[in-house]
C-alpha cells in the first residue's frame, strides 16, 4: 500500500517536472512566433474566436442573475443604488476571471489536449521531428501564447457583458435608478485595485489552463484511451488549479 502510494507520488512528481521542463521550449518558441505571426493567428481562431460565443452568453446571464439576486438582498435595507457596484465588483474581481477560465478549460483546453494528443497518437509530432521541425516550438508554442492572450480578453468581455446584463435587469426590469447604478459602479470600482488585479488574475489563469492543456496532450499515452483520459485530466486539473489559485491571488490582492 505504502509502496503504491510512493510510486504514485513519484509519478506525479516526474510529471510535474516534465511539465515545467516544457515551459522552456514554449518560451523559446516565441522567437518563431514573432518571425511568423500567422502561426499565432491560426491558433487564436480556434482558441479565441470559437470560445467567444459561450463566454458572451455566459457573461450576459451571470450578470443578469447577479442583478436579480443582488437586488433581492440590497433592496431589503434600501441599498439598491449599490446594485451597479455589487454586480460590477463581483464580475471584475472574481466571476469574470474565474468563470472565463473554467469555461475556457472546458471549451478550448480540452480541445487543445485532444488535438495535440491525437497528433501524437497519429505520429504527426514524430513526423515533424523527422522533418527537422521542433514540435514544441512549431505546434505547442503558438497554441500556448494564443491561450495566454485570449483568456484575459475573454474575461474582459465576460465582465463587460455581465455588467450589461446586470444593467438590463437592474435598470430595465427592476427599475433601479440608472444614474445611481452607473455612478455607484464608477465610484466603487478602482482601476488599479480592481480592473488591473482582475486582468492579472485572468492572465495567470490563462497561463495555467493553456499550459495544463498543452502538457496533457503532449504527455498523453498515444492511444485513443490515453487521449480521452488526458482530456478529462485537463478539465479537472485546470478547474482545480483555477479555484485554488483564485483563493491565493484574492488573498494576496484584496486581503
Amino acid at each position: 500500500m505504502l509502496n503504491l502510494l510512493g510510486g504514485w507520488g513519484l509519478q506525479a512528481l516526474t510529471r510535474l517536472g516534465r511539465a515545467h521542463l516544457l515551459l522552456l521550449p514554449l518560451f523559446r518558441g516565441l522567437t518563431e512566433i514573432l518571425r511568423r505571426p500567422s502561426l499565432l493567428v491560426d491558433q487564436l481562431y480556434s482558441v479565441g474566436v470559437l470560445t467567444l460565443l459561450i463566454i458572451g452568453v455566459a457573461g450576459l446571464f451571470v450578470g443578469m442573475v447577479l442583478a436579480l439576486q443582488g437586488y433581492n438582498v440590497l433592496s431589503r435595507f434600501g441599498g439598491d443604488t449599490a446594485l451597479g457596484f455589487m454586480v460590477a465588483a463581483s464580475l471584475v474581481r472574481e466571476l469574470g476571471p474565474v468563470l472565463t477560465a473554467l469555461l475556457f478549460a472546458g471549451r478550448a483546453g480540452s480541445a487543445l489536449t485532444a488535438e495535440i494528443g491525437l497528433m501524437k497518437a497519429t505520429e504527426q509530432l514524430s513526423g515533424l521531428e523527422m522533418m527537422a521541425v521542433n514540435p514544441e516550438c512549431r505546434v505547442l508554442a503558438p497554441r500556448f501564447f494564443a491561450g495566454l492572450l485570449a483568456v484575459p480578453l475573454l474575461a474582459a468581455l465576460f465582465s463587460c457583458l455581465g455588467v450589461l446584463g446586470g444593467w438590463m435587469v437592474g435598470g430595465g426590469l427592476l427599475g433601479v435608478d440608472q444614474a445611481a447604478f452607473w455612478n455607484g459602479m464608477q465610484d466603487g470600482i478602482d482601476f488599479n485595485d480592481d480592473i488591473i488585479n482582475g486582468v492579472i488574475k485572468s492572465l495567470v489563469f490563462g497561463f495555467v489552463c493553456t499550459w495544463i492543456a498543452i502538457f496533457q496532450g503532449y504527455d498523453c499515452v498515444p492511444t485513443s484511451e490515453g487521449v480521452s483520459r488526458a482530456t478529462t485530466r485537463t478539465v479537472v486539473h485546470s478547474s482545480l488549479a483555477v479555484l485554488g489559485l483564485d483563493f491565493v491571488l484574492t488573498a494576496l490582492m484584496f486581503g
Binding site: 491525437l118 497528433m119 497519429t122 505520429e123 504527426q124 514524430s126 513526423g127 515533424l128 523527422m130
Partner: peptide
C-alpha cells in the same frame, strides 16, 4: 511513417 503521419 507507417501511418503516413500527414498533418491532418
Amino acid at each position: 511513417f507507417q501511418s503516413g503521419a500527414l498533418l491532418t
